[in-house]
């Protein structure tokens, strides 16, 4: 969870007027680089994998063949071990022939300003003049609340307090395995401004089915234009799939509560025709 990777939230497809900027990665010398083992330009990498063959000379040859096809030349087989009678595990070190062209790397930048808790509270007071209501749940069969809890619970995640900590945000966390009709009903009851759903452990695209079912149910239950902000989070969602899933935003692995809070302020501010203070500058 405390991955050093940061998420690259992408713009909402249902709001095509939001700002998208693509910028080249800065801080690298030259535009072509290779992996760094212990010397610039040596191209050294390590990989490990298992092949479904018994461990013998031929198996080791097979591992080296795979390494060569992956662009490792020369490849050094440093470890081979039988796992049961039919599988062999390998560790291979080697220099990859591939080059990384840094100026062709494209990343999507966050399209809303990151605010502190104080700024978030101020912005909500200004745009809504009442607390912002967030209803959160793990929907469908997913019983793993780690994701939604990291964002909502006061305890928070990665040293940041969760949304419950924000004085101007009222959080209703429904927990795990919430049924979609139940979620819609609670969202209406609480007059939710935003609905957060989390999908952590999923198989066979259950996260996609669950999320589309959820967004469809909300569109059916609310008059158009009145649907709360729908936000889905979880490690399996693809960047850029928000539109296809019918939600306003997708958040991936490593998202912090402050990012979610900042997005909420940004999106709710836009909806209510007032702009958050940061944007006025």
């Amino acid at each position: 969870m405390s991955s050093s990777r940061t998420t690259d939230p992408q713009p909402s497809q249902s709001a095509p007027d939001t700002l998208v900027s693509t910028v080249p990665v800065k801080g690298t010398q030259g535009s072509v680089i290779r992996p760094y083992g212990d010397m610039t330009g040596d191209g050294m990498v390590q990989v490990s994998f298992t092949l479904p063959v018994p461990h013998d000379k031929r198996a080791e040859g097979a591992a080296l063949q795979l390494a060569a096809k992956m662009g490792m030349a020369p490849a050094l087989l440093v470890h081979a071990k039988a796992i049961g009678p039919e599988h062999t595990f390998f560790v291979v070190y080697g220099s990859v022939t591939h080059l990384v062209e840094v100026d062709k790397v494209v990343v999507i930048e966050r399209d809303f300003p990151l605010l502190s808790a104080k700024e978030v509270n101020q912005a909500i007071r200004k745009s809504l003049r009442r607390p912002l209501v967030v209803v959160g749940a793990c929907i469908g069969t997913d019983a793993h609340t780690v994701g939604i809890d990291a964002i909502l619970n006061i305890k928070g995640f990665a040293g940041e307090k969760g949304l419950e900590y924000y004085s101007e945000i009222r959080v209703v966390n429904l927990g795990a395995q919430v049924l979609v009709p139940e979620l819609v009903e609670r969202a209406r009851e609480e007059q939710a401004d935003a609905v957060l759903v989390s999908q952590v452990v999923t198989q066979r695209d259950a996260h996609i089915h669950n999320t589309t079912a959820m967004s469809a149910a909300f569109r059916e239950a609310y008059p158009s234009g009145k649907v709360p902000l729908l936000i889905a989070g979880g490690p399996r969602f693809e960047e850029g799939s928000a539109g296809a899933l019918g939600v306003d935003r997708i958040f991936g692995k490593g998202t912090t509560p402050a990012e979610v809070a900042s997005y909420l302020v940004h999106a709710v501010g836009q909806r209510h025709g007032t702009r958050s203070s940061e944007e006025q500058q």
Binding site: I83, G84, G140, T141, D142, A143, H144, Q177, V201
Partner: peptide, 14 residues
């Protein structure tokens, strides 16, 4: 065979 004494079959979530 690899040494486990106890096997747990995790249940389908839901």
């Amino acid at each position: 065979r690899a040494g486990a004494d106890i096997i747990a079959v995790i249940r389908s979530t839901g």
